[in-house]
Computed example of a mutant assay.
Amino acid sequence: MAIFLCGGWALDQPEGRAEQQRWLQALQQVLPGEDWVLQKPDGPAQAAAIEIAVVANPPPGSLQGLPRLALIQSLWAGVDRLLQDLTLPHDVPLCRMVDPAMNEAMVQTALWATLAQHRGFFRCQQQQRTAQWRQPAQLRAGEWQVLVLGQGELGGRVARALAGLGYAVAGWSRRPRAGEGLRTLHGAAGLAQGLATADTVINLLPLTEETRGFFDAARFAAFKRGAAFVNLARGAHVDEPALLAALDAGQIGHAMLDVFREEPLPAPHPFWSHPQVTVLPHTAAQTDPRSAAEVVAANVRALRSGAALQHGVLRSQGY
C-alpha cells in the first residue's frame, strides 16, 4: 500500500519542488520504508494502491478515483479549503493537523501582540518615525482585558498562556465549554459582553459558513471603543472595508493582522500604510515539518492497528 503526498505546491517551479521535498524528507524520517506517490497516480493500479493521502491544500479533485483510500491527513490546522472541495470522498476519515511546535509559535505571537498593545509599544514605534518622546501609561496586566474568540486547541492554549502572565482573560465559544480555570463566555450574549469590555480581541475561530465575514461593521461597533484587534485565524473572517472604517473612526485603536482575504497582500492595499495597522505576512505560526511528521506518523500507525485516529474533523461543523 502507498501514501499519496499531495499539496498545492507548484511542482513546475523550484520553490514548489523544494517544499514538497522538505515534507517528504521529514515524513520519511518517521515513516521509513513507505511507498510514496508524489504526483497524480499513474493509472488504475497505482491509484488502487493508495491507502492514505497526506495533503496540504491540494487542488480540487486530487483525491478522486482512489478506491482504497482510508485516511485523509491534513498538514494544516485549518481544513476549510479541503471541505470546499465537493469531490472530497465523504466516507473517508479526515484529520486535521495539531502541531505542537505551531501551537507554541501561535502562543508566542499572541503574547507579543497583546503585550505590545497593552504596554503601548506599537504607539512608541509610530512615535519613533517623528522623533516623539512620549511615555505610554504602564497598566498592570490584570488591568488589561483580553478576549480570545475560539476555544479549540489553539485558542485554549493562547488564553491559558495570557492568563499565566496575569492578564484578565476570557475565552468565547459558540456553546458552553469548560475553560480549565479560565473565565468562559458563550453564545450571543457572552460575545456582546466580552466585546464590550475587552481591550484586546484575539480571533482564533475556525472558518466556517457561520464565521465567514464574522467581523463586519456591526461587530466592530460592538467592540469597546479604542480596543485592539488581532486576527490570527483567517482573512475571510474580516470585512476589510468595515475594519478600515472602524480604524479611521477610532472605534478600533489598532489592528494586528496576520491573514488577509487576498494573499500575498497586494501592494496598493491600504493596510500596508495605515498608521494603526501592523501587517504580518501570514507568519504568526507555521507548521513545522519535523513535529508535524510525528503527528502524521501517529495517525498512520493508528489506522493500521485499528486504534482511534487523533484530531478527526466533524465535517458538519467544518472543523
Score class of each variant (00 low, 15 high):
2 A>R: 14
2 A>H: 04
3 I>E: 03
6 C>E: 14
6 C>H: 02
7 G>H: 04
8 G>N: 13
9 W>P: 00
11 L>G: 06
13 Q>T: 14
15 E>N: 11
16 G>R: 09
26 A>R: 02
27 L>S: 01
27 L>P: 01
31 L>H: 12
36 W>C: 11
37 V>A: 03
37 V>M: 06
40 K>M: 06
41 P>V: 13
42 D>P: 00
43 G>D: 14
45 A>H: 09
49 A>D: 15
53 A>P: 12
54 V>I: 14
59 P>T: 10
59 P>H: 10
61 G>R: 13
65 G>T: 08
66 L>K: 05
68 R>E: 15
68 R>Y: 02
75 L>Y: 04
80 D>M: 05
80 D>L: 04
82 L>I: 09
86 L>V: 14
87 T>M: 04
91 D>W: 01
94 L>F: 08
94 L>R: 04
100 P>R: 07
102 M>W: 03
105 A>W: 04
106 M>D: 02
108 Q>S: 10
108 Q>N: 13
109 T>P: 00
110 A>Q: 09
110 A>K: 11
110 A>E: 06
112 W>P: 00
112 W>A: 03
112 W>C: 01
119 R>K: 15
122 F>I: 03
123 R>I: 04
125 Q>N: 08
127 Q>L: 12
127 Q>F: 13
131 A>S: 12
134 R>C: 07
134 R>L: 14
136 P>V: 13
140 R>N: 13
140 R>H: 13
140 R>T: 08
140 R>P: 00
141 A>S: 15
142 G>K: 01
146 V>N: 03
146 V>P: 05
146 V>S: 13
148 V>S: 05
148 V>M: 08
149 L>Q: 12
152 G>A: 10
153 E>R: 12
157 R>V: 02
164 G>I: 10
165 L>G: 02
167 Y>N: 03
167 Y>K: 04
169 V>S: 03
169 V>R: 01
170 A>S: 15
172 W>Q: 12
174 R>C: 05
174 R>F: 02
182 L>R: 03
182 L>Y: 05
182 L>K: 02
184 T>H: 06
192 A>Q: 15
197 T>L: 14
197 T>D: 13
199 D>Q: 15
200 T>N: 13
206 P>V: 06
207 L>M: 09
208 T>C: 07
211 T>G: 10
212 R>P: 00
213 G>L: 10
215 F>H: 13
217 A>R: 14
218 A>F: 00
219 R>Q: 14
222 A>P: 01
223 F>V: 06
223 F>R: 05
224 K>C: 07
231 N>D: 10
235 G>K: 10
239 D>I: 10
243 L>M: 14
244 L>R: 07
245 A>R: 15
249 A>C: 05
249 A>M: 03
252 I>P: 02
253 G>N: 06
254 H>F: 05
256 M>R: 02
257 L>A: 01
260 F>A: 11
266 P>A: 12
268 P>Y: 09
270 P>E: 12
270 P>H: 12
271 F>L: 13
272 W>A: 11
273 S>T: 15
273 S>Y: 01
274 H>R: 08
280 L>N: 08
281 P>K: 11
282 H>A: 11
283 T>W: 06
285 A>Q: 04
285 A>I: 12
287 T>D: 02
289 P>T: 07
293 A>F: 05
293 A>K: 05
297 A>P: 08
305 S>M: 05
306 G>C: 08
307 A>I: 05
308 A>D: 15
308 A>E: 15
311 H>R: 00
313 V>E: 05
313 V>A: 09
